[in-house]
Amino acid sequence: MKTTAAPDTLSLILILGALMAFTSLSTDIYLPAMPQMSADLHGNAELTVTGFLIGFAVAQLFWGPVSDRIGRKKPLFAGMVLFAAGSVGCALSDSIGEIVFWRVFQAVGACTAPMLARAVIRDLYGQAQAAQMLSTLTVVMAAAPIIGPLLGGQIIRLTSWHAIFWLLALIGAAMLPALLKLPETHPAAKRRREPLWHAFSHYGELLANKIFMRYVACVALFYTAAYAFIVGSPFVYIDYFGIDAQHYGWLFALNILGVMALSVINRRLVNRFSLDQLLRVATTVAALAGFITALCAYSGFGGIYGIVLPVFVFFATNGIIAACATAAALNGVPHIAGAASALIGSLQYGSGIVSSLLLAAFADGTPQTMALIIAVFAVGSMIAAQLRLRPSASI
């Protein structure tokens, strides 16, 4: 059942889809420029992703309880202003240290977008409808990781990578009038009344909730594997396999098409199977694809196709895993959906910190480190999905 009258309109879908896409857009658009940034700034460009994910993970833990107390729209407006300001700082940076700092600042604002979009969905929809809506938004938000790298590749062909961040600043500013059309889905009557400091105690409640944390672990481990590809693939494809930076975006976009296709299919699947059943199958497929990726990377079998094809299968499963795990996790804690969404987002995207640091420390110029991280953490996601923490695993 819907918890509030939901304006189920195209504008709502587009706005929420744009908000959900902010994380991907903030990083994917400059992926083709990372090798050039490393050369220009004489540093490790992977750390710019690490900085963003640190800010993104930590700030959500603040914004979640705030949104439960004051509503969803005010934090969204504040977040867009901070995102735009951080993007300007990145554009003006001339060292890795500076850009990492501004990436953290940028992330403090950007994190409000997908986190509060999830909370809005939980405010408006029941469990099955929420999973369907998340799948729909996955299709809409997939435009960002498809267009982003392609656009970024063209920008660096015509000018410098600084222009990419100027573009992000304009996008953040353009979202402000769009947010005026978004309804306030968390009315005053449903807001938390306790002091703000007390609201942070909800994280302890969530961390102690084994059922909730099982789903969070499932999606967080999957995203650790996914970020290994997101951060590592520019160097693997461009430097190792010699793909032109302008064409890197096409290989990246291929994976997103798989996510979109499975997200569309998932809208039907959630009406026929339990969320747990879908998660078990999807994470098993992802783990097998990760294992094949590592096998090809270490043996050299298939060359670039030995990486591209199994990664495509692995990435496609995100169309089921992210939507089902998030919907199942939020369903059990509707009274603190803002804090719950914040914790999910913090651990989901914060998990990418692990990938980026591992790649920065151990990447050897081959696909092997990236592929090994994908395989190990995809298996971890599968194990989390297989756990049975109550007599009936059906949601």
Rank of each mutant, 00 (worst) to 15 (best):
M260C: 00
T112I: 14
I15R: 09
D239S: 11
Y223K: 11
A361L: 13
T50G: 04
E184P: 02
A130V: 14
T326W: 05
A340K: 03
A337D: 10
S392M: 12
L167W: 13
E46K: 13
G71T: 05
I121L: 06
T224S: 09
L167T: 10
G319I: 12
R69I: 14
T293V: 00
A59M: 03
L257Y: 08
D8W: 15
I292A: 05
L288T: 08
T159F: 15
I164M: 03
P32I: 07
L19W: 02
W250H: 11
Q129L: 15
T366F: 08
L359F: 01
I320N: 06
G51D: 11
F165T: 11
A128G: 12
A173V: 15
H198K: 15
M213G: 00
S356N: 08
F222D: 07
A128Y: 11
G345C: 04
I164N: 06
G109T: 00
L347S: 07
M175F: 14
S11H: 13
D239F: 05
G258N: 09
A325E: 07
L180Y: 10
K181D: 15
D28V: 01
L357C: 02
G64Q: 09
S95C: 02
V49G: 01
P145F: 01
I374V: 14
A6C: 01
L279N: 09
L179G: 03
Y248D: 11
V100W: 06
L10P: 10
A286R: 08
R118D: 04
A143C: 15
R157C: 14
T23P: 08
G300T: 04
T283V: 07
Q277A: 15
I373S: 11
L251A: 01
T4P: 13
T283M: 09
I292K: 00
G51T: 04
T366H: 00
L150I: 05
F77W: 13
M370Y: 06
W197Q: 11
Y30K: 11
L251S: 00
P35F: 14
S356E: 13
I320A: 03
A323I: 10
D8H: 14
Q368Y: 04
A91E: 05
W250S: 12
L358G: 05
G290Y: 05
A286T: 15
Y203R: 00
V104H: 07
T224K: 07
Y227L: 13
T23S: 08
A360G: 08
V379L: 12
Y240G: 04
